[in-house]
Design a protein around this nucleic acid. Structure first.
Lengths: 158, 158
DNA sequence: GACTGTTTTGTTATATCATAACATTTATAC
DNA sequence: GTATAAATGTTATGATATAACAAAACAGTC
């Protein structure tokens, strides 16, 4: 199951995500500067997407409020580096759960708790490619964002 | 092939779309008022998505420039009525090509000419449902927007 | 370790997309 | 024709995102 349990040890998620980001940056010569790393860390505080201005609010609590550009630039870097995904249907951002390798991701977004599961290599991607081939369409980017209710919220609702 | 040829008789698309909208509105008791109908007509001038403020610009050429609310309200109505779709990845809107029946749509968006094909009942939808079932996820809304290059632009590029 | 070109950051301003709130008008049902 | 609901007009504001340019930090080279 791709959905993290509400009771999982989340500190491990954070540590692991940052460790992988550090390693990937070192390997590829990317400059994961303090601001960039901090934005990634903020995103990893939860398994639900955050808006750029939400991130800004968190940064503001730590000192001077930076300009929005600061956050958007960090996000641009993190997205290019494959460490963060943008969720178009929410105008929001989330840490990539498998940044080790390139991939096209599909998302399941819980409308109740916000928890968002990232899936890769699903039959959805194959179906998209198949469809595109039929239509003679050259695929460059896939946006697959499915909203609904996650298993934990479903069982909580009875 | 879902992609309209650049040389198709587009006036027929417009006429047909509006006729269907009129009929659907009559059948369901929806009030397709002049502004709403005009917004739909503007969207149908092309097979590519338009932003709300693009629509506003067109309306402005016909007289006083309405407030943005006017356009957004018309779009809300048209979306609820199933006559228009919103493309999340572009913050833009496009006329629904099969408004006769409810459906989940998938979109192929050409990055070169903007032409956007709407597909329904594709294997993609099935793959999404299958995936969701595996994850125990209750699907409410699907956003599937694929960007790339359409067959016409591909052959034009050689 | 100074020079130089590149990358990153700081800062201000502004563009773009969307909705809240409330008054007024128009349509519909009885 | 009056009551109710629906739609429109209007003003203001909220939310998201980028342009442009100056200053500082960094990386490679001599």
């Amino acid at each position: 199951m791709a959905f993290p349990s509400p009771r999982h040890d989340h500190s491990r998620c954070i540590k692991s995500a940052l460790a992988i980001a550090d390693e990937k940056s070192r390997e590829l010569g990317l400059r994961l500067t303090p601001t960039r790393r901090r934005v990634l860390e903020i995103l990893w505080q939860r398994h639900s997407p955050m808006g750029a201005y939400d991130i800004l609010d968190v940064l503001a609590e730590e000192g001077d409020r930076p300009a929005p550009m600061v956050v958007y630039r960090a996000l641009d870097f993190l997205i290019d580096a494959g460490l963060v995904h943008r969720l178009n249907s929410l105008n929001a951002f989330i840490g990539c759960s498998t940044p080790e390798h390139d991939h096209d991701a599909q998302f399941l977004i819980c409308q109740s708790c916000g928890t968002t599961a990232e899936l890769a290599g699903t039959p959805i991607a194959k179906a998209v490619d198949q469809m595109a081939k039929t239509e003679g369409f050259d695929v460059r980017e896939r946006v697959v964002e499915i909203s609904g209710v996650c298993p934990h919220c479903r069982s909580a609702a009875g």
